[in-house]
Design a protein around this nucleic acid. Structure first.
Lengths: 97, 97
DNA sequence: ATAATTTGGTTTATAAAATAAACTAATCTA
DNA sequence: TAGATTAGTTTATTTTATAAACCAAATTAT
């Protein structure tokens, strides 16, 4: 009937992060922060969770002299996102039986 | 960019309850319990939250001698559900800009 | 008849999650 | 060189989800 919703993706901020990374393939921490309106602390925690799950990679590099954290979606992350959307449909479609 | 997701609906169980009520317009507590696979306790709590928000009504009646709790969606609930789906789309569509 | 079981829940306690506040460290600017 | 800004992380707090424990009535078995 209802397919389970991946709890890692069923979160407003983490879903927004994944959505951004699907669209832009790679994004810097401050950009994600600006686009999502999240606080840096919250974003840091959620990025770490997605990274720990293998849904995104986090590269810590430099942009000139300043630190620069770049996030990218992984194939696993893309797969999980697609599965999540499919699962969501089981909640959104009107059942006829 | 991203539209906020009504936290009352952005919950696996509450979303399932709302989904059932949209499809069947009216449903008994044990039926919802069976369809969602939720425990009675969890279901009771989430039904109460939806009821407190005015998204559903809860009628406590009897079926023969046994108590019977009937849930129905309200116009407000339907509206909120539709708004939630629209908001979700802002996370699921691939952005081109 | 009464003891055990089932039905239909509610209340309460616990575990997990989201979020913000506080903090660190380096760089830029006045 | 003092203050402000950037780029985050860590930690504490609040909120939420969930299950366990509980209650009451009805049904079934002994």
């Amino acid at each position: 009937m209802f397919q389970p919703l991946d709890p890692l993706l069923h979160s407003e901020l983490r879903l927004a992060i994944m959505s951004l990374l699907i669209s832009s393939d790679e994004a810097e921490f401050p950009y994600i922060k600006e686009q999502t309106g999240a606080t840096a602390g919250n974003l840091s925690v959620q990025v770490e969770k997605l990274s720990a799950a293998g849904y995104i990679t986090v590269e810590k590099t430099f942009k000139g002299k300043r630190p620069c954290t770049i996030c990218r979606i992984t194939p696993d992350g893309l797969k999980a996102f697609e599965t999540y959307i499919e699962a969501l449909k089981s909640y959104l479609e009107v059942k006829t039986n």
